[in-house]
Computed example of a mutant assay.
Amino acid sequence: MKIRPSSAARIRARYLACCLAGLLLLAACPARAQERVVVVADSWMPYNGTPGSAREGYAVEILRAVFETRGFTVDYRELPWKRAVRDVRSGQADILIGVTPDELPDFIYPKTSLGRSELCFFTMDSGWRFTGPQSLTGVVTGYVQGHNYPGWFMEAIGRSPERFHALHGQDAFARMLAMLAEGRVQVIPGNRAVVDYYVQQAGLEGQVFVAGCSETGAHELFFGLSPANMPKSRLLADILDQGVYTLRNTGQLNHLLIKYGLKDWLKPR
């Protein structure tokens, strides 16, 4: 029996409605996936520390303040640095804490930085000074494998690997400081805020000295977002820019930083 025109029209309308509902459902899937933001890095306080602790680090607290108020769940995990980089690059994680565009140029970056890092050298020998690459001759220097160091530093390792001791894995920086305290290395390079934090935690105040800083080691730090998770990463970068702007202009950022004994890395306008 033939279907009357009115019945056929109703069937077509139902069919189109079902198709539209299916398309809307598919469009909603990416939005649901974006509700969870996986953040990874190795322990590098005061930027990031133990997940779930009262002091997860100011970078993690920024992420929570920005994303959780917008309905996202921040899943922060502490991983060895090399694995953290690999997971974000492959899309298994969304955000890496404390990187630079020069270090990982394939990553996606917000416009807003996470702070400024200056490469300084620390020792327990108050008579030793860093005056340039040549001053590392005659001392054993520890470093964290996979971290971003100036080209001249990596070239020095290549020329004289016996004068450098590489650490990697969990709590690499804390273990490197312990090696300095034990005399197994004589010098360690690092971000001043990071070294100051771990020195205080280890009770080594007054025993570890900043011996000078590299003129070529200063750079802006950023959150690095996964190049494999587009367009999600672009969306997260935009949210970060807007969120940090709000935190800064409402005074929430300063309040958050005070907890870690820090000040805003940008001069007030």
Rank of each mutant, 00 (worst) to 15 (best):
R4H: 13
S6T: 11
S7C: 02
I11W: 08
C18E: 07
C18F: 01
C19K: 02
A21Q: 01
L23F: 12
L25D: 02
A27P: 03
Q34W: 15
V40D: 01
V40M: 02
P51W: 03
S53G: 10
S53N: 09
E56Y: 07
E56A: 06
V60Q: 02
T69W: 03
T69S: 15
P80K: 05
K82N: 09
A84F: 04
R86P: 03
Q92A: 15
E103M: 11
P105H: 06
D106E: 14
Y109P: 03
L114R: 05
L114A: 06
L119D: 09
F122M: 11
D125H: 11
W128T: 04
R129A: 14
T131N: 03
G142H: 00
Y143P: 00
G146R: 06
H147G: 01
N148M: 13
F153Y: 03
M154Y: 00
E155Y: 11
I157T: 10
S160W: 10
F164S: 03
A172G: 10
R175P: 01
A178M: 04
G183M: 06
V185A: 00
V185H: 05
P189F: 06
P189T: 04
Y198K: 00
G203Q: 12
Q207L: 12
E215Q: 15
T216I: 12
H219Y: 11
E220W: 15
F222R: 04
S226K: 10
A228F: 07
N229Y: 07
A237D: 10
I239A: 11
D241G: 05
Q242L: 15
V244S: 05
T246A: 14
W265D: 00
